[in-house]
């Protein structure tokens, strides 16, 4: 069996304080908190550099953290505009936040000594529920009462049947969104851990490369699907 993995944040006072509460696994909570702190710090740094010099992005030719964040956010906005059109700017805060949070969380797993918070089902379920609830909120806000037509199907006498089927379909979205991310990250981390225990030299590098690839692709898939779901709620029922 694989050697006992050493998690740095398991040895903090916060961990032992949270451990006393019944039924709580403190590791993903602390790691998610770490990712959130990291992102808040990054956002504050970048916005400060914009405030001090609004033209910074046009002048600087070297690689800075501001340029890097601008590249990521600009790329995401560009991608969203291709699929959503004018609505892209409205939903950039929601989709960008979940997307970047998931990306950083996934990538945290490739650093030895850290657990990705997304390898726990609770974290991914929270993200998926936020996205699906936001989808329906957006639907009700844009269509009002007519949003119910999305659940009715084409024929009126089939409506009660279609309603049940649509509700099952929407619940399946939550399940598939959360389980895909959780399964990929959990499996990836498990494979990496086991090979690290078996052959500590050279071989885990290949799996780390695979881990980076899976992290980026899964974060992208989550973002893509949330964009699709929200634009599905925006369009007219047919």
């Amino acid at each position: 069996m694989a050697a006992e993995t050493f998690i740095i944040l398991d040895h903090t006072p916060l961990h032992s304080a949270l451990e006393k509460i019944e039924g709580i696994d403190p590791a993903p909570i602390i790691h998610a908190g770490l990712v959130s702190l990291l992102l808040v710090g990054l956002a504050i740094t970048v916005s400060r550099s914009y405030k001090s010099n609004p033209r910074i992005h046009q002048e600087e030719k070297t690689f800075t953290i501001t340029n890097f964040m601008e590249m990521i956010v600009g790329g995401l906005l560009n991608f969203m505009q291709q699929t959503m059109g004018d609505h892209a700017k409205t939903f950039l805060p929601l989709i960008g936040t979940t997307g970047i949070f998931i990306l950083i969380s996934n990538l945290l797993g490739t650093i030895p000594g850290f657990d990705p918070p997304t390898s726990n089902l609770n974290t991914t379920l929270a993200c998926a529920i936020v996205i699906v609830v936001a989808t329906h909120y957006v639907g009700v806000r844009t269509h009002g009462v007519k949003y119910i037509k999305h659940f009715m199907g084409p024929v009126l006498w089939l409506a009660p049947l279609m309603f049940v089927i649509e509700v099952i379909g929407h619940l399946a979205r939550i399940l598939s969104l959360s389980f895909r991310l959780f399964g990929n990250m959990f499996g990836d981390h498990m494979v990496l851990g086991i090979f690290m225990g078996l052959v500590p030299l050279l071989i885990p590098v290949a799996f780390m490369g695979l881990g980076v690839f899976v992290s980026v692709v899964q974060a992208f898939v989550f973002t893509l699907l949330s964009i699709l779901y929200i634009s599905g709620a925006l369009e007219e029922a047919h």
């Binding site: 619940l171 399946a172 979205r173 399940l175 598939s176």
Partner: peptide, 24 residues
């Protein structure tokens, strides 16, 4: 590439729909 990602997500969604129906 986007399409491939989109359709790859379909399999899990189909399975999840049956499971949700069964649990309900």
């Amino acid at each position: 590439f986007y399409d491939l990602l989109k359709y790859s997500s379909l399999g899990l969604e189909m399975g999840a729909a049956v499971v949700i129906g069964l649990l309900m």
